[in-house]
């Protein structure tokens, strides 16, 4: 019997029943001798069990009448109204993550007006970032040296209690901020941050938001990315050209602090 080297790939194959039977013993021995891989195999096995159990209940649900009817040729009016709409919810990027059925229906039946609020916020935030983060001397209206005034001024204009997040632990220092238009009549605060290498990120905060959503958005491939959160009464986007993990970490820290400030 030829011995072969096993790798992480074999963990997946073993789990999915694709490992040839004659290799099983050698695989088990390899796993026993390799604590890291053994732990990984155990986690993946547990994850698969959790996945199966999370969706197991679906098999026991009675087949909905509208699906029976669709198959047996008696399509009802109600079923037709729903048909082919499932992907709109994915487009709205709302229903899957947070919106319930009510948000879904409002998004579609409300002339589709609210279903891309999240994109709009992200697009505005990216547009502002592209313009101002590139400015060396005129990036901000009020510099970080005048932070107290900056926070009071932007809070009054935007209508939210704004506290500029401390992102020092993520390597970013506040440069300053400016006031921007948002939506058709609203205002937004933009806070600009810079790291030691001169890489800049911006926070875009507005009170103009009627829906709840969360996601990432990239207007064009290779351009800056926005991580955004929308809630009723405020929205926040963090924009930058960082690797996704870093942007996501910075965004989470910024959002947590903003939220704590707004609701304090």
């Amino acid at each position: 019997m030829t011995r072969r080297d096993f790798s992480e790939r074999d963990i997946h194959m073993a789990l999915d029943g694709e490992l040839p039977g004659e290799e099983r013993m050698a695989y088990d021995a390899w796993l026993e001798a390799n604590a890291e891989m053994k732990a990984k195999a155990a986690r993946y096995t547990a994850d698969r069990a959790a996945l199966r159990s999370a969706f197991a209940g679906v098999l026991d649900e009675p087949v909905p009448a509208r699906l029976r009817q669709a198959l047996l040729g008696e399509t009802s009016v109600k079923a037709t109204a729903w048909r082919s709409r499932w992907w709109l919810s994915a487009a709205a990027a709302v229903v899957l993550a947070v919106g319930g059925l009510s948000g879904y229906v409002a998004g579609i039946d409300g002339i589709g007006k609210t279903d891309n609020d999240d994109d709009q916020i992200a697009e505005q935030a990216i547009a502002a970032h592209v313009i101002y983060a590139a400015e060396k001397r005129h990036a901000v209206e009020v510099p970080a040296s005048d932070k107290d005034h900056l926070q009071t001024w932007l809070s009054n204009r935007v209508g939210l209690k704004l506290v500029a997040p401390d992102l020092a632990s993520e390597g970013f220092e506040l440069v300053g901020g400016r006031l921007l238009p948002a939506g058709s009549q609203g205002k937004a605060a933009m806070l600009l941050y810079e790291d030691a290498k001169g890489e800049r990120i911006s926070l875009f905060v507005t009170a103009e938001s009627a829906e709840t959503a969360k996601g990432t958005y990239m207007a064009e491939t290779g351009g800056p990315e926005a991580v955004y959160w929308l809630d009723k009464g405020y929205a926040c986007a963090v924009v930058g050209s960082l690797p996704p993990e870093r942007l996501s970490a910075v965004a989470k820290s910024a959002y947590g602090q903003l939220l704590a400030g707004i609701s304090s």
Binding site: F55, L67, S84, Y104
Partner: peptide, 18 residues
């Protein structure tokens, strides 16, 4: 359901499929 999470959206997909 595993692809889309939301029950109605998932059933819409099944209906399209049928």
């Amino acid at each position: 359901r595993s692809l889309l999470r939301d029950r109605d959206s998932a059933d819409d997909l099944v209906q399209d499929c049928l």
